[in-house]
């Protein structure tokens, strides 16, 4: 069972960085897990705590946020807010016994295709070890 378990990852990608980097993964012909779902948002600041929780609730084994590097956000604080919301949710997740690792954030830039792929694959392996989400 655990052998064939392929964790489902929802990646929220800022249109200014993460989404372009995800495109670049394709251009570099690096592979990504099939179970990765990409959600495109105009800015990481658009991502509501509610969306992140919903993703977990609807069966994602892990949620990743791809935001711009700090001090490189067109909306100045979008990436910082996303990070703060993640921190807030980590608190809740701890209380309800959900592993913090299931929600993570990665700062990158448009040309960080390799980093995007690496982050996703790393998270994929980590979640594999962690096992399926207990709320599924």
């Amino acid at each position: 069972m655990v052998e064939s378990f392929s964790p489902r990852i929802v990646a929220f990608c800022c249109d200014k960085s993460g989404y372009v980097a995800a495109d670049m993964v394709g251009k570099l012909r690096l592979s990504l897990p099939e179970s990765l779902d990409i959600v495109r948002v105009p800015c990481a600041g658009r991502i509501d705590a509610l969306h992140l929780l919903q993703a977990l609730e609807k069966g994602a084994d892990g949620v990743l946020i791809f935001a711009c590097h700090e001090e490189n956000c067109q909306s100045l604080t979008g990436n910082i807010r996303a990070k703060a919301r993640m921190g807030y949710l980590h608190g809740i997740m701890e209380r309800i016994g959900l592993e913090k690792e299931r929600l993570d954030l990665c700062n990158l830039a448009t040309n960080n295709g390799a980093k995007f792929a690496e982050t996703v694959l790393q998270k994929f392996d980590e979640l594999k070890k962690l096992g399926p989400s207990p709320v599924e």
Binding site: S17, V20, C68, H69, E70, E71, N72, N107, L108, A109, T110, N111, N112
Partner: peptide, 23 residues
């Protein structure tokens, strides 16, 4: 072909801007 040189935060190398402008 310049890479992003951010560390924990953006180090203002502007390489990503080139990428955007090309697109």
């Amino acid at each position: 072909v310049f890479a992003c040189k951010a560390s924990e935060k953006c180090n203002k190398c502007f390489a990503c801007v080139v990428d955007n402008q090309i697109q």
